[in-house]
Design a protein around this nucleic acid. Structure first.
Length: 227
DNA sequence: GCGACAG
DNA sequence: ATCTTGTCGC
């Protein structure tokens, strides 16, 4: 799978912010995505004192959540972690990883925000735009916006409001656990993004796609460190 | 200036 | 994100 838009990730914060604002104009949160047959979860991992990153992507059937295929990649990263610029740190290794993926999944779910971002261009939106693919952001903690505590039962949700607009939902993916924060990445509505994330949630807080990707990439990293 | 702050 | 063992709760 190859990106449709290519650009440098070796940018200053100012340049990165300008790029985010420019590319955010390409984000669409209008469409119905059509029938979803496959969902790809992506996650990145690394060890404490290093700048060697590992990425993992797992493709699952939807809504069965059966694992169909998976790929991993390794890369060296220099961009620091700064809230609001996570994609510049993680996308390079993710691109190396997705390059190994045969075919294009219907949806990509990333660990991070979609449009629930200072410039409406979080990790999931960035991936969605450069690959021109349906994408959803599913973060474990909020970055921007305000929201009420969603109902405690699985499926309970409450909108995340940022600068007067609804950018996503705080979603309970399991009874009595902290919610996850879902926002559209690209080519999907806020509502479809939450429904899809919820449909991917089984018996754990983290939806299967990103949960499987997380397990895969951690095993890959540990195996790589044992040499 | 102070506090917030995805992974 | 990662460093880490046991432990409390559903």
């Amino acid at each position: 799978m190859k990106p449709v838009i290519r650009h440098s990730f070796n940018l200053s914060f100012g340049e990165a912010a300008n790029l985010q604002e420019k590319l955010s104009a390409k984000v669409s949160t209008a469409g119905k995505s059509g029938k979803i047959k496959t969902v790809c979860g992506i996650d990145v991992s690394y060890s404490r004192g290093t700048n060697i990153f590992f990425a993992g992507a797992v493709v699952l059937s939807f809504p069965d959540m059966e694992i169909l295929s998976s790929v991993t990649a390794k890369d060296t990263v220099f961009f620091p972690y700064v809230p609001g610029f996570l994609s510049f740190r993680e996308i390079p290794v993710i691109q190396k990883c997705l390059l190994k993926l045969n075919g294009k999944p219907d949806v990509i779910i990333a660990d991070g925000q979609g449009i629930a971002h200072p410039r409406k261009f979080g990790l999931a939106s960035h991936i969605g735009v450069i690959y021109n693919i349906v994408s959803i952001g599913c973060a474990k903690s909020p970055l921007v916006g305000e929201f009420d505590e969603p109902p405690a039962k699985k499926g309970g949700k409450s909108p995340i409001i940022y600068k007067g607009a609804k950018v996503g939902y705080a979603l309970r993916t399991k009874d009595n656990v902290k919610p996850v924060f879902v926002s559209p990445g690209n080519l999907i509505s806020r509502e479809d993004a939450v429904q899809t994330a919820l449909a991917c949630a089984r018996r754990y807080r983290i939806p299967e796609p990103t949960r499987q990707a997380h397990m895969l990439v951690n095993n890959f990293r540990k195996k790589h460190e044992k040499r």
